[in-house]
C-alpha cells in the first residue's frame, strides 16, 4: 500500500473512532468523553464512555474491517467484482445459525454457541456457493447461487423467529436482516474478536496467491501456488470472520462490496495491498454508518444495514451499469 493511502486511511480511522466515542444519546462534551476514557471524571461518565460507547466503537471497527477484508478476498478468489459476504449468502446464513442457537436458549447455556452458530451458517453458505459456482468464475451462476442461498437462509430465519418462545422474537428479524450495534457490550467484543482475528489471519496468508491468481489460475499454479488450498483458506477465513461478526451484529450488507471497489484504483488494482486497504476502509465506513444510525433517530435507532445499503445499493447499480458498458 502506498504510504499516502495508508496515512489517509489511518487518519480517517482514528477520526471515526474518536467521533464514535464522543457522539451519542447522552450529550457529553468531547473533551470530557475522552478524559473519561482514561479514568478521569465522574463514575457515570466513565461507565457511559467505557462500557457503552467503547465496545460499540470497537465492534464497528472490527466488523467493518472483517467485511471489507472478506469482500476484497472473495472478489480476488472468485475473480468476480460482485462477490461479497452479503451477496453470496454468507451473512444471511450466519444470521440463521446465530438465530437458531440464540432463541433456542443454547447460547444462554454455552456462550461460545453464538459465534459458532454464525460461523457454521456462514461456512455452509460460502462452501455451497463455492462448490456450485466458484470454480467456473462465472458471474451469473455465482450471483444466482448466492441469491438462492440468501433467500433460503432468510426464509428459515423468519421461520425460526416465528417459532421462538419469546414473543418479541418475531419482530427481531429486522435486526438479523439489517444489523445493529445498539446496546452491545464488551461481552460481544470478546465473543467475536478472536474468530474475526483468526479469519483475518487465514485470509492474509493467501495474499501472495491472490496476486498470482490475477494472471489466471493456470499461471498461478505454475508459479507454485496450490489453488485448492488458497480457496479453502479464504472460504474458512471468511466464514470465521463474517460468521462471528454477524452473530453479534446481524447481517450488514454492502460494506464488503463497496469498500474494495472504492479502493481498488488507489492501490493499483493489486489484490495484496487491497486486502489491508479494504480492512481499514471497511472499518471507517462501518464506524461512520454506526454514528449515523444512532444520531439520525435517537429514540428508535436506525439499523446499520439501512445506512450501508443506502450507500451501497446505488453504488452496486452503478457497478452493473458500467460493467454493461465496458465488458471485460
Amino acid at each position: 500500500m502506498k504510504p499516502g493511502l495508508a496515512i489517509g486511511l489511518g487518519l480517517a480511522l482514528v477520526g471515526a473512532f474518536l467521533a464514535s466515542l464522543t457522539l451519542g444519546a447522552a450529550s457529553i462534551a468531547p473533551a470530557d468523553a475522552l478524559s473519561a476514557l482514561f479514568g478521569a471524571g465522574d463514575a457515570t461518565l466513565r461507565i457511559i464512555v467505557i462500557e457503552v460507547r467503547l465496545p460499540r466503537a470497537l465492534l464497528a471497527l472490527l466488523i467493518g474491517a472483517t467485511l471489507g477484508l472478506s469482500g476484497a478476498a472473495l472478489q480476488g478468489l472468485l475473480r468476480n467484482p460482485l462477490a461479497e459476504p452479503g451477496l453470496i449468502g454468507a451473512s444471511a446464513a450466519a444470521a440463521l445459525g446465530a438465530v437458531l442457537v440464540f432463541y433456542s436458549g443454547l447460547a444462554a447455556m454455552f456462550v461460545w454457541a453464538l459465534p459458532l452458530g454464525g460461523i457454521l451458517g456462514a461456512l455452509a453458505a460460502v462452501g455451497l456457493v463455492w462448490l456450485l459456482a466458484g470454480r467456473s468464475g462465472d458471474s451469473l451462476s455465482l450471483i444466482l447461487a448466492g441469491v438462492a442461498v440468501a433467500s433460503l437462509a432468510g426464509a428459515l430465519t423468519a421461520l425460526a423467529l416465528n417459532f421462538a418462545p419469546n414473543p418479541f422474537a418475531a419482530s427481531e428479524i429486522m435486526f438479523w436482516m439489517m444489523g445493529s450495534l445498539a446496546d452491545r457490550s464488551f461481552e460481544h467484543v470478546w465473543l467475536a474478536a478472536p474468530f474475526m482475528a483468526a479469519g483475518a489471519w487465514l485470509i492474509l496468508r493467501q495474499a501472495p496467491a491472490l496476486d498470482a491468481l490475477t494472471l489466471g489460475p493456470d499461471t498461478a499454479r505454475t508459479l507454485g501456488f496450490d489453488m485448492g488450498r488458497t480457496a479453502r483458506g479464504i472460504v474458512l477465513g471468511v466464514a470465521l470472520g463474517v460468521g462471528a461478526a454477524t452473530a453479534v451484529a446481524g447481517a450488514i450488507g454492502f460494506v464488503g462490496l463497496v469498500t474494495p471497489h472504492l479502493l481498488r484504483p488507489l492501490v493499483g488494482y493489486r489484490p495484496r495491498p487491497l486486502l489491508l486497504a479494504s480492512a481499514l476502509g471497511g472499518a471507517v465506513l462501518t464506524l461512520f454508518a454506526d454514528i449515523g444510525a444512532r444520531l439520525a433517530a435517537p429514540a428508535e435507532e436506525l439499523k446499520l444495514g439501512v445506512l450501508t445499503a443506502l450507500v451501497g445499493a446505488p453504488f452496486f447499480l452503478y457497478l452493473i451499469y458500467s460493467q454493461r458498458r465496458n465488458p471485460q
Binding site: 462500557e51 419469546n166 427481531e172 446496546d183 464488551f186
Partner: peptide, 20 residues
Amino acid sequence: GRDAAALADLPLAHPALRGA
C-alpha cells in the same frame, strides 16, 4: 424479568447497568 431469550432484553442485560 423473563426467561426466554430475545434481543429485546439486551439493554437490560448490559454490563454497564450492573456497574452503575
